[in-house]
Each structure stands twice: as structure tokens, then as C-alpha cells.
Amino acid sequence: MSNNEMARMKFYCDDQRCIECNGCSVACAEAHELPTGVSRRKVITLNEGVEGKEFSTSVACMHCTDAPCEQVCPVDCFYIREDGIVLHDKDVCIGCGYCLYACPFGAPQFPRDGAFGTKGAMDKCTMCAGGPLETNSAHERELYGQNRIAEGKVPMCAAMCSTKALIVGSADEVAKIYRTRIAAKGKGVQSAPYGWSKAYSN
């Protein structure tokens, strides 16, 4: 970055490149040793069967600007890092589910680990940036998964994406790649990336 301002981290899934291999989802689940039934990242296919309109894309927490989950949480367990990554404190979360109702992407998930099937603390994509606990501690790893950002690594899903459809990085870098790709194609109309109008409109 040229200026002193923190980079704004964003996800971008190029739906022209996504081949619905589900590699991102598997890589994420493996890297973070997620419990069965929880997948922080999911590949979805839209307009299935509609000729010319069908496309697949990878969805997880988009780490929205003015995150709706953060606004509705009754116990204020969310916090937004300077680089825009939306994280939450599982020791504070009461598993009420409000963040899920507010989320435009269906990202928050609730493992049923309590007695009588009560909802446990919410789990979602951390952009591989862990949680509020001591960075790279065993406790952080157990609750939130790897903290790859702290180690200077790319989040797992984007790192292993075979077609490089899924990209994560600072807003400037992502925009640069996005523009280069459109310019290289040189034809057709490219709409805004799926989900961006909801996540990064402000």
C-alpha cells in the first residue's frame, strides 16, 4: 500500500472461472478442522438449467461494510478489524441466530452441541484471521481455526482455488485483477461481481 491507510480486504469469486469443484469448501473445512455439518464456504449454482444464465460461485461470509450481523447482535460479540475483516467472539456469543437473519449470504452457522440440541456459538468464515484470543494460540485454533493472515498467508480457499476464480486481498489489488481480466477478455458485458452490491455498497 502506498498510503498509511489499512487495506480493505475483500473476497471476489469470478463466476466465469468457477468450475464448481468445491475445492474451496473442502480446503476450508480441512484447514480449520470444522465439525461435521458446518461448512464456512459453499459453492452454489444459480439459474440452474437456464441456458446461458447458469453460473456457479463460491459463497462465505463476505466481511461486509457496515456488517448487518454486527448491527443486530444483542450481545455485541462482533468486531470489525481495521482491514475490514468481520470477526466475532465465541465466548460472548449466545447462539441466538439473529446474525443469520440479518446476513444477506446465509453465512452464520450453528453447530448443535448443547444438551437438547441447543444452538452452540455461531461459526463463520474468519477470512483465516482467527478470533479475539491470543494469535496462533491453541485455544484460538480450536475455536476459530487457523490464523493464516497473521502468518502473512493467503486464506486457504483462495490459496488452493484451481482456476483462481476465488481471489482475496486488498480492495485495490482485487480491483486491479478484476479489471485486467475484463480487459483481456475484450468482449461481452461484465456485471458487478456477485454479492458485491450487498456486501460492499457503502
Partner: peptide, 18 residues
């Protein structure tokens, strides 16, 4: 639960929810 943030969330508010 409604004013959960003033109780710090966590174990106590979770118990109230149950």
C-alpha cells in the same frame, strides 16, 4: 437477552436463554 451486551453475553446470558 434483549440487553445481553450489558451483561457481557457469554455463559450467563446463554443460561438465561436456556
Amino acid at each position: 437477552m434483549t440487553f445481553g451486551s450489558y451483561f457481557g453475553g457469554g455463559e450467563f446470558v446463554r443460561m438465561m436463554k436456556d
